[in-house]
Amino acid sequence: MAELPGQFWSGWVLVLTLASLAGLVWLVFSLYFDGDQKTQDAGPIWDGNLREGEHPAPLWWFWLIFISLVISVIYLMLYPGLGAFSGALKWSQGGELHERLDRFSMEFGSTRRLVSEAKLETLREDARLMASAQRIYDRNCAVCHGYDAMGQADLFPNLRDADWQWGGDAAQIEQSIRHGRQAVMIGWLPVIGEQAVNQLTDYVLALGRGNAASHPGAQAYKSYCSACHGADGFGNVQLGAPNLTDGVSLYGSTREAIHQSIAEGRNGMMPAFGDRLDDTQIRLLVAWLSREGDDRQ
């Protein structure tokens, strides 16, 4: 529905518009057809050589403004313009969008529904659909996870490796996209002190290298970290606690980075896209991101 002015303002707009247009028409007609075109008085001469020319205004110009005025009036009959008169076509910009959306569903609706219900393998085999999937990725995901999906900025995870903090099977990926993720690791420095943080940093580095056995930090790890990251450091995808033994570390693998993670904590956050993407788009993204496995056998 078009937004239309109230009664008073509607009349105001209507009257002033039509009256002033009539004034313009009068000006043009009077200047062209007052029967006085030829008899021009000589007029003054300004500044030595400035004079008014005596040529009548050209007729084609009359037609130019006449036609544009006629088009204007027709347009104002068809479309909203003259106050609360919404035009013969009952057009509104919201209505036009609805029409376009209806046409969109007629044209693409069935294909898109098929896609949203298709097996992931089938989708993966269709190069054109995967191209569409990549377009969806580029528009929504790439500025964080990188245009190559390899992650970036020591903050946004690589989506091309096997290391998925929140789980890499199709259902888990869909969950991540649809509802987002919020990691909660507290900063341990105020809790356990600098010495313990240092010890844990060394232990985590050793875990990553695979030689943590009989490391002096094991006791502290067991007390503070194992609840989330697991007794052996394999992590927990339910909590988004990453695997500490695979040598892959989102926030950087240097001693400083790991020290910072333990001391200050990490709160990695993935926004929810359930409101921004429809089922078809999410399905395509899941197919494009996951390599194998399907939850809808």
Binding site: N140, V143, M269
Partner: peptide
Amino acid sequence: GGKYSDAW
């Protein structure tokens, strides 16, 4: 609003 994280 909400499309990307604060950190991004």
